[in-house]
Design a protein around this nucleic acid. Structure first.
Lengths: 138, 138
DNA sequence: AATTATTTGCAACATTGTTGCATGTGAGTA
DNA sequence: TACTCACATGCAACAATGTTGCAAATAATT
């Protein structure tokens, strides 16, 4: 388990450090999306706020996690599936955000439909954000 | 023109004031999405920051504008089409955000495909965020 | 024109995110 | 294992963004 995490970090040419290991662990456990604030809480404030910001940035750059667009202004992050990092294709994500509890679910099994863009527009990425009430809040 | 704006405000039971008229005007002109910062600039700082925040909140509540989810955390707003305010149906929006210049386009002519949600999830709204390079930046 | 309800601006604060720099730690090498 | 160097961390200070309470100003109603 810890080994697996170390592997991921090394593959991305990142040093294996306490904060990175811990944060990656959190993502694997949570199985959903995390915002900066969530991570701060779950790590019990053992890491500096700045470190968390930088770790998240690094992870995004290396393609380990990706951001999820939200309408309230809190960036959320989720683990990338393997395909993300290949770069051979569009990054497509479907997420569900609960209006009630704010939990963000990755709906990986659903495919993003193709969107026909007007002339001159190039698509790099497509996100579908469905919001409403989740199964725990109904 | 000004009359039309006053009409919209009255229909929502809002007093017709300088800031509200001006901000609504901006939305009608821009024909795209605006963030708080854009509005501050375009109004030449003649209105207090707080007023702009509150005006935007009010407009959202009244269904005059809607928020657009973004991955950088800056909330953007755009005018609602008439259907928005009826509430008889899902609110569906397709937007294109340019990675280069940040301009947000509303792609109203494109329909959001139906997303099949897992059991227990209720959809209130669906946003499709396509990002990439727009026609001006290619 | 006077009254009332609403809106605005100010001040103060809270939250979120960024940058520079000194210190500490991990990874590679002798 | 000890040494070196690159990189990661924490701290401090700052910048941007958003919120709240309250008094003054303005719009709507009579």
């Amino acid at each position: 388990m810890k080994n697996e995490i170390a592997e991921i970090l090394k593959r991305s040419q990142l040093s294996v450090t306490g904060s990175r290991t811990k944060i990656l662990e959190l993502f694997q456990e949570s199985n959903g999306a995390l915002a900066h604030a969530d991570i701060e809480k779950k790590t019990d404030e053992s890491y500096d706020r700045v470190t968390i910001y930088r770790t998240l940035q690094t992870f995004v750059e290396k393609g380990i996690i990706h951001t999820i667009p939200t309408a309230d202004n809190s960036i959320r992050y989720a683990l990338c599936k393997d395909e993300c990092s290949t770069g051979h294709h569009h990054d497509n994500h479907v997420h569900f955000i609960c209006d009630e509890c704010g939990t963000t679910y990755c709906l990986d099994n659903i495919t993003v439909p193709e969107i026909a863009l007007p002339e001159g527009f190039t698509q790099k990425r497509a996100d579908v954000i469905v919001s409403g009430i989740c199964k725990n809040c109904e």
